[in-house]
Amino acid sequence: MKQEYTVTVYTENQIGLLNRIAIIFSRRKINIESLNTSPSEIDSVHRFTIVINETEEVVRKLCRQIEKQVEVLKAYYNTNEEIVWQELALYKVPTDVIAEKVKVERLLRQYGARAVVIRHDYTVFETSGHREEIEALIKALEPYSLIEFVRSARVAIIKASHGFHSKLKEFERGEPGEEVVENEFLNQQEGVFSM
């Protein structure tokens, strides 16, 4: 069954790596719904957050292909239940319209938004949250001549993760230990060995 997966990739910070990762998806004609690149909890390590809509089998294989890239340290995939995630959005509306017609205060409270810029000609609201919340505010602002809207890529934190510090130490050793060579079959003895 296809569903939303968030792929988290820890990498070296290297020019060209974004392309190397992106073509793993495009080659298989898989649409990237959202892509974020960012620093990670570790200075030299970069973090990609990629959202796709696929079956688990496809996502698992994609992660293997991603991990195969020389400059990739590790790739994880998670369902939405396994992560805490947010997207951020900006909305620009004409100040006069909004001041005249809307109970702005209520609107902001209701959607957890705040005004980041208020000028005489326009106002920019910001909100962050899940997709539905962001879209609900578009709906609410649409009648008031929404001038511009933009939504950011998803950022996500894996609930079960203990971070990457200890893993990185393993990677830095000449002979990495089991920590980094997780074998997902291992915890499924029964399922795998169906003799």
């Binding site: 020389v70 400059e71 990185l168 990677f171 830095e172 000449g174 990495p176 230990g177 060579v181 074998n183």
Partner: peptide, 13 residues
């Protein structure tokens, strides 16, 4: 002979 992000051989289990 070592690149930290590159594992030429997986560990044998």
């Amino acid at each position: 002979n070592h690149i930290r992000s590159y594992r030429p051989k997986p560990i044998i289990r």
